[in-house]
Amino acid sequence: MALALKLFLFSLLLPLCYCADPIAHYCAQRFTSSQIQANINQVISDLTTKASVGGFATTSSGKENNTIYGLAQCRGDVSADDCSACLASAAKQFPVTCPKQADARLWYDYCFVRYDTDNFIGQSDTGFVTILYNVNNATDPVAFDNAVSKIMAKVNAEAVSPGSNSLGREKTKFTQYVTLYALAQCTRDLQPLQCAQCLSTTLQWFPIYCSHRQGCQVLYSSCKVRYEIYPFYFPLDGETGNPAKDYITKTLHPH
């Protein structure tokens, strides 16, 4: 109750952001232990506080088999206020989306938060993936896919470069009237090689789900990539789109 009240009061002080509902989630490992629940509560509280400051945090709580490990990261381009609001939304959402689950992950547009009984910190995780793709096709699909390949190569390279904070952003003119925007990001606990490998793995889904699509994003627990024909990252240079209206979501558990 104390944690729930703390998070509620904290959320009242935060600005509104587009983070009320997660765009993807994963829940596993049902438990009944009150100690595990207490450790989860502590991890969520720590992550909400610490990641609000620098946009990234890892933590743990408990001993031996009851230990819970956690990670939170905001998208590297969002403001501190939007980051804090997104983390607060995730903290409130976990008991609703993943009740009594010791392995839980929530993806939002602005942030990603997870906790687990296994120590996943510093390990690349590509065992679960969610893909969101636009239902509309590009008018010149072959040329468009070539442009997507080029810009994704740029943002992926930028995300693993020194000083990038594991974030890559690029935009390029596709036609006189269409600009292509792209973003790539890894969780900041990964080494550059791990980040590069994770981002490379996202591209395997492009021929299957993203070909010709006006927008697409691939979400792993350790990295994500996205492109659109409207500005979606900050600083914005025009009107944003509405992904929820025009997108189909696929959730896969590849082995």
Rank of each mutant, 00 (worst) to 15 (best):
residue 170 E to Y: 09
residue 150 K to Q: 11
residue 176 Q to I: 05
residue 181 Y to N: 11
residue 181 Y to C: 11
residue 176 Q to Y: 05
residue 175 T to M: 03
residue 196 A to N: 06
residue 174 F to L: 08
residue 154 K to R: 11
residue 179 T to W: 02
residue 152 M to H: 06
residue 196 A to D: 07
residue 187 T to Y: 11
residue 194 Q to F: 03
residue 176 Q to P: 00
residue 174 F to Q: 06
residue 158 E to K: 13
residue 184 A to D: 09
residue 150 K to Y: 05
residue 195 C to T: 01
residue 155 V to M: 15
residue 168 G to F: 06
residue 192 P to A: 08
residue 195 C to N: 04
residue 163 G to S: 04
residue 173 K to Y: 00
residue 160 V to I: 15
residue 153 A to K: 07
residue 151 I to Q: 01
residue 181 Y to T: 10
residue 193 L to K: 10
residue 190 L to N: 02
residue 188 R to L: 00
residue 192 P to T: 01
residue 187 T to C: 13
residue 196 A to F: 01
residue 193 L to F: 07
residue 162 P to G: 07
residue 150 K to C: 02
residue 188 R to T: 01
residue 165 N to S: 01
residue 191 Q to L: 14
residue 188 R to V: 02
residue 172 T to Q: 14
residue 169 R to V: 13
residue 158 E to Q: 15
residue 170 E to R: 10
residue 196 A to S: 12
residue 155 V to P: 10
residue 154 K to Q: 13
residue 185 Q to G: 13
residue 187 T to V: 15
residue 162 P to C: 06
residue 165 N to E: 00
residue 172 T to E: 15
residue 185 Q to L: 14
residue 181 Y to W: 14
residue 183 L to M: 14
residue 178 V to G: 10
residue 193 L to G: 00
residue 150 K to D: 11
residue 162 P to Y: 06
residue 167 L to Q: 04
residue 193 L to W: 01
residue 190 L to V: 10
residue 165 N to C: 00
residue 150 K to M: 08
residue 164 S to P: 07
residue 172 T to Y: 08
residue 187 T to M: 12
residue 186 C to N: 10
residue 172 T to D: 14
residue 188 R to P: 02
residue 157 A to F: 09
residue 188 R to F: 03
residue 165 N to M: 00
residue 171 K to M: 11
residue 176 Q to G: 12
residue 151 I to R: 04
residue 172 T to F: 07
residue 162 P to W: 06
residue 152 M to Y: 02
residue 174 F to P: 02
residue 157 A to T: 15
residue 173 K to L: 01
residue 182 A to F: 01
residue 197 Q to R: 05
residue 193 L to Y: 05
residue 186 C to S: 12
residue 160 V to E: 02
residue 192 P to I: 04
residue 197 Q to L: 09
residue 166 S to T: 02
residue 166 S to L: 00
residue 173 K to P: 01
residue 163 G to W: 06
residue 167 L to D: 04
residue 190 L to P: 03
residue 152 M to W: 04
residue 162 P to A: 09
residue 166 S to M: 06
residue 176 Q to E: 12
residue 181 Y to M: 11
residue 186 C to P: 10
residue 192 P to S: 07
residue 196 A to K: 02
residue 153 A to C: 06
residue 184 A to I: 02
residue 156 N to I: 09
residue 152 M to G: 04
residue 188 R to M: 01
residue 197 Q to F: 04
residue 185 Q to Y: 13
residue 156 N to F: 08
residue 161 S to N: 14
residue 177 Y to W: 08
residue 153 A to M: 09
residue 187 T to S: 15
residue 183 L to W: 03
residue 167 L to S: 06
residue 161 S to E: 13
residue 159 A to K: 04
residue 178 V to H: 11
residue 168 G to K: 05
residue 177 Y to L: 11
residue 165 N to H: 00
residue 151 I to T: 04
residue 152 M to E: 11
residue 196 A to G: 08
residue 193 L to V: 10
residue 182 A to W: 02
residue 194 Q to W: 02
residue 183 L to R: 05
residue 159 A to S: 14
residue 168 G to N: 10
residue 189 D to V: 10
residue 193 L to D: 12
residue 165 N to D: 00
residue 155 V to C: 15
